[in-house]
Design a protein around this nucleic acid. Structure first.
Length: 431
RNA sequence: UCCGGCGUAGCUCAAUUGGCAGAGCGGGUGGCUGUUAACCACUAGGUUGUAGGUUCGAGUCCUACCGCCGGAGCCA
């Protein structure tokens, strides 16, 4: 056996004898010449088997190869302009590891339900492969961004003891005889960590038991949430636009091939750089009215409203100063116009919806206590959270970025179910 | 939870007015020395989601249920 290589590093081994370990993606035959498309997770390469260049035994073995059969292929790597990756393998030997019988996902169109039932196999397909590689790049870029700015990653717990804002959207579990809930956000714990380290972020799964059946909703999704001490809303919005720009530009730079596979039009993504348009809630309402949208002043925006707003701009748009009543208890109100919260949402272009929600947090003990009471929340449960306002409280702000919606936007995928390896939806918890 | 749509071969779909259940892909067999979801020929493959009803006759019409899809509501 020759040196084992990854297909993606073929360029380094031109005209050398190498071995590739992988799976058969597809096969074509023309009598005495056969073409094997082999994937190894890094890329796909066409392997050419010519009858009178290999032993009879090896040539006959190609007959046994079915889709997704695992194998080792040895041969000479040669440059070929006809090949998508620029190289082909001229086969000298084939070792079959396991023959796959009746692989369900054939090279043709399939329906959503069938593919979702076979998600564990679907992720081997080209398109899913490209999406998940971009997801990886987005997560890496997001963490790099904060790591390069001296943030400390402090993860929040998944189990939480209390229902922060009503139990309807929380998943309840049994925790040694007491109720516990799966977290909806790491934010409150990130605030505690923020008072310890100054700049922190957490990254993990969050859970919402909402019966939402739309292309933007999962019951389990991943969020990355920075929290910064001595930051006001303006600082927060600036951090958010720099953050999102960095992610988009990094993906454009490092995942060009995957974006091509997905046939993503990148011209709009290329324009994503600071500053982003920032509009007050009142301006947003004006825009909706100008576009003939029926909207009750004081409400939060629905999915259709968000699309109208984001369609006005080429870049993501930040809407700030939402009516305090539709926002969470912990958001600080603007002292100059107290009916508004110092909150902001970032809406992705092209109808992908809200990708960031953030705010400056209430940092005054008495005010926060009052809000907790107004919302009928348990003072006892939030004792530790109130402590943060008791022992050296400072102005601080943060936001959360939903990974799946960000992946959907950047890849141009229509539904978030394709942006996470194993999606959890209202109607699906298999595989 | 509400509105709309769909359910036929392993998969994607077709089947005229209610009148013989069919094609492509995948599988099998054979052919082809440059194929790109290769192609060509042959071949196997069906409780038409489930239960009931109307009818001489139901994939098709009616009722209920199940499942899925899209949307709304909901959604720091």
């Amino acid at each position: 056996m020759a040196q084992i290589i990854r297909i993606s590093e073929s360029g380094k081994y031109e005209n050398q004898e190498v071995t590739i370990q992988g799976w058969l993606y597809n096969k074509r035959s023309s009598g005495k010449i056969r073409f094997l498309l082999v994937r190894d997770g890094s890329a796909i390469i066409q392997c050419v088997v010519v009858k009178n260049e290999v032993s009879e035994d090896v040539f006959e073995r190609t007959e046994l190869l079915t889709q997704e059969t695992s194998l080792r292929v040895t041969g000479k790597l040669v440059a070929d302009k006809r090949a998508p990756i620029g190289y082909e393998l001229h086969v000298s030997d084939i070792e079959i590891i396991q023959i796959a019988q009746d692989y369900p996902i054939t090279p043709k169109e399939h329906g959503v339900d069938f593919l979702m039932d076979h998600r564990h196999l679907w992720i081997r397909s080209k398109r899913q492969h490209a999406i998940l590689r971009i997801r990886h790049e987005i997560i890496k870029a997001a963490q790099d961004f904060f790591n390069n700015r001296d943030f400390i990653k402090v993860d929040s717990p998944i189990f939480t003891p209390n229902a922060a804002e009503g139990t309807t959207t929380l998943f309840k579990t049994d925790y040694f005889g007491s109720p516990a809930y799966l977290t909806q956000s790491g934010q409150l714990y990130a605030e505690a960590a923020c008072m310890a380290f100054g700049r922190v972020y957490c990254f993990g799964p969050t859970f919402r038991a909402e019966k939402s059946k739309t292309r933007r909703h999962l019951t389990e999704f991943w969020m990355i949430e920075p929290e910064v001490a001595f930051f006001d809303l303006q600082d927060d919005m600036q951090l958010a636009e720099e953050f999102v720009s960095y992610i988009v530009q990094t993906v454009l730079k490092n995942r060009k091939q995957e974006l091509e596979t997905l046939e993503r039009d990148t011209t709009k993504l290329e324009k994503v750089s600071p500053p982003f348009p920032k509009i007050h809630y009142n301006e947003a309402v004006e825009i909706l009215k100008k576009n003939g949208v029926e909207f009750t002043y004081g409400d939060d925006f629905g999915g259709a409203d968000e699309t109208v707003l984001s369609d006005q701009f080429e870049k993501p748009v930040i809407v700030h100063h939402y009516p305090a009543e539709v926002k969470a208890f912990y958001m600080k109100r603007d002292p100059e116009e107290p009916q508004f919260a110092l909150a902001m949402d970032m809406l992705a272009p092209e109808g992908y919806g809200e990708i960031i929600g953030g705010s400056q947090r209430e940092d005054d003990y008495d005010t926060l206590l009052q809000r907790i009471r107004e919302h009928n929340l348990s003072e006892e449960a939030f004792k530790w959270y109130l402590d943060l306002r008791k022992y050296g409280s400072v102005p601080h702000s943060g936001f959360g970025l939903g990974i799946e919606r960000t992946v959907a936007w950047i890849t141009g995928v229509k539904h978030v179910r394709e942006t996470i390896p194993f999606p959890r939806l209202m109607q699906r918890i298999y595989p």
